[in-house]
Amino acid sequence: MRIFQNPFRLLPAALIVVSCLAQAQSAGTLIRAAELKAEPFADAAALVNLPGDAALTVVDSKGGWSKVKTQDGKTGWVRLLNVRLAAGASDTSALASIGGVIRTGTTKSAATTGVKGLSKEDLARAKPNPAEVRKLDAWRAKDGEINRFAAARKLTARDVPELKP
């Protein structure tokens, strides 16, 4: 079949498709019993009560809420801190490494591609660069700029006590 003659031609398209499909599809576990909510609000309707160790797939997050799919196919929202994701749970992680190499040629391949980075090896090789440090002074934010930054976003400062461990 002609289409397979040059499989690399299809790679970019395949990557896009896979990355769309795989966006934030992460396996997780509920760490305490909770209601599955129809919307990401405390007073939203409860769809079902989930047990404390329910296996879930996290598909999205918004503020302090995670959008999850239960094993029997129900979709709804639970508090973000009530879900613990499995290590390397995302379907995108394998893709990210492929994509990372294609896009940037960084990290592990840094030595061979001649790209600088911030790996342990890059740090070990590093020579002090004081000229670069001096550049930071020119970019410092003035009080007026910070005020305008906050105003443009309607950010209002509020009192929040420190959290105890």
Binding site: G64, L85, S93, V101, T106, R158
Partner: peptide, 24 residues
């Protein structure tokens, strides 16, 4: 305190959780 949603950092940590073993 600055006015941002408190769950920004927890969301980043969730994101990191899915990146264990990833390049970079």
């Amino acid at each position: 305190r600055a006015g941002y949603d408190p769950y920004g950092l927890p969301r980043v940590l969730n994101l990191y959780a899915t990146k264990a073993g990833s390049n970079g």
